[in-house]
Amino acid sequence: MTAAASPINTGVIGYGLAGASFHAPLIAAVDRLELAAIVTSRADEVARDHPGVAVVASAEALIADPSIGLVVIATPNHLHVPLARAALEAGKHVVVDKPFAVDPTDGEALIALARTRGLMLSVFHNRRWDSDFLTVRGVLDSGALGEVMLAELRWDRFRPAIKGGWREASVEEGGGMLADLGPHLIDQALALFGKPEALSADLAAQRPGVMVDDYFELTLFYGARRVILSGSTLVASARPRFALHGAAGSFVKYGLDPQESFLRAGANAGDTGYGEEPIETFGTLTFGDGRTEGIVSARGDWRLYYEGMADAILDGAPPPVEPADALAGLELIALARRSAAEGRRMAID
């Protein structure tokens, strides 16, 4: 595809939670992107949220539109690969919501196709720009913890009732908690600590009648260091979101990044308070001698992902998330499922 004009006309496929609360408002907030079209049956919601944005009847019609330069796929997981393939074959740059693919082999094929066509392909790992993650990275970079020997990244919910829908219908179609929250936690762990030597995993379906995993715990092995990634649907009193323990001290942080709740409430990215955590969820640094220090949370900003996409397409910068990074996460998820099924620790090539 030849160099796109600025701003880049962008089309979003899907207007459920991801399309309506994450992708569309972030695209609309980036100067060098133009939210031009959305594929959805919810035309009234689009008219309310984004007046003037076209509503398109089908993904095929949006992909065929010559004015669209970037296609964003925010559909149920099992549709990610076929839609991304169709968009790449039509000469469009592509953003795929996580998980990139259900099968890592399909993700690898998409990367090869994008490379062959000379197109930008990226995966929406927006949690790299969470307030809490940026804060944790800053604490690690400061050296205040010394060498970290135990890190716990947890994402808990309290949802005893099964909601239904595709996320709780079939693991084969990308359902289950590991496919939903696992990509975020794994991506954050890889960004902080790199590739592990091995992993072990425990998966369970704990709620009566549930058809997919609704609990997971992965242990990543880095020599003597252990990194634990966990999620549960039956935790009413949430555990720390991050807990890192090193030779010089510990950093513990509760609460979730506020950007999702901010956008779901109808506010705009960039409004006063966007990405800023309340003081009550600031983390605490505890030193070996018992001293404590409150750490002001960094400001999160998911807009940086889409600003990075504009830079990649228009200026030739690297994508904000390399698809190879997302593929590495998919491969760990596949290995985790094997580990849980076979009840053993798995080496990572």
Results as ranks from 00 to 15, higher is better:
Ala267Glu: 01
Gly164His: 04
Glu152Asp: 06
Ser200Cys: 04
Val102His: 06
Ala84His: 00
Val148Ser: 14
Arg157Gly: 10
Gly165Gln: 14
Arg239Gln: 11
Ile279Ala: 13
Ala298Cys: 14
Leu110Ser: 09
Val81Tyr: 14
Gly255Thr: 02
Leu330Lys: 06
Gly16Met: 08
Asp289Thr: 09
Trp166Thr: 14
Tyr222Leu: 03
Asp97Cys: 08
Ala4Phe: 05
Glu307Arg: 15
Ala90Leu: 02
Asp65Met: 06
Pro318Met: 12
Ser6Val: 10
Asp97Leu: 05
Ala61Leu: 10
Ile73Phe: 02
Asp130Leu: 00
Leu314Trp: 10
Gly164Leu: 04
His80Leu: 04
Ser250Gln: 06
Tyr254Trp: 12
Ala47Tyr: 08
Met177Asp: 07
Ser170Tyr: 08
Met211Glu: 14
Leu145Pro: 06
Glu322Arg: 14
Phe193Met: 07
Leu62Gly: 06
Ala144Thr: 08
Thr116Arg: 15
Gly16Gln: 08
Glu89Ser: 08
Gly14Arg: 02
Thr272Gly: 06
Arg32Gln: 13
Pro104Lys: 07
Glu147Cys: 04
Leu33Gly: 02
Ala334Arg: 15
Ile333Lys: 10
Arg241Asn: 04
His245Cys: 05
Glu60Thr: 13
Arg167Asp: 09
Leu79Gln: 15
Ser67Glu: 15
Thr272Pro: 01
Leu79Gly: 03
Asp213Met: 10
Ser122Glu: 09
Ser261Met: 09
Arg159Ser: 11
Trp166Met: 09
Leu203Tyr: 07
Leu330Gly: 13
Gly308Glu: 10
His50Tyr: 15
Thr284Asn: 03
Asp132Tyr: 05
Leu119Ile: 11
Ala191Asp: 15
Arg167Tyr: 15
Ala340Ser: 15
Asp187Leu: 03
Phe251Cys: 05
Val56Asn: 04
Ala179Gln: 15
Arg338Ala: 15
Gly146Arg: 11
Glu260Phe: 08
Val252Phe: 00
Ala57Asn: 09
Gly107Lys: 06
Glu45Asn: 11
Leu145Val: 07
Ala326Ile: 09
Val46Lys: 07
Pro196Gly: 08
His245Ser: 14
His184Trp: 05
Ala267Ile: 00
Asp130Arg: 00
Ile348Glu: 11
Val81Arg: 05
Asp315Val: 10
Ile228Phe: 05
Ala114Phe: 08
Pro66Thr: 04
Ala86Glu: 13
Glu293Met: 11
Ala90Arg: 09
Ile186His: 00
Ile73Pro: 05
Arg226Met: 05
Pro160Gly: 10
Pro51Arg: 04
Arg32Thr: 02
Gly270Glu: 01
Glu293Pro: 01
Ala18Gln: 14
Glu342Asp: 15
Met211Thr: 07
Arg48Asp: 09
Tyr254Cys: 00
Ala336Thr: 14
Pro7Asn: 11
Arg291Trp: 01
Leu33Arg: 06
Leu244Val: 12
Ile162His: 07
Leu17Pro: 00
Pro319Cys: 13
Asp214Ile: 08
Ser58Asn: 06
Ile313Ser: 12
Gly231Asn: 10
Ala3His: 10
Gly316Cys: 08
Tyr305His: 15
Glu331Ile: 13
Ala336Glu: 13
Arg115Pro: 00
Val72Met: 07
Asp130Tyr: 11
Phe100Leu: 12
Thr2Gln: 14
Met211Tyr: 03
Ser230Asp: 06
Gly118Ala: 05
Gly11Trp: 01
Gly11Lys: 01
Val235Tyr: 00
Asp315Leu: 14
Arg159Pro: 01
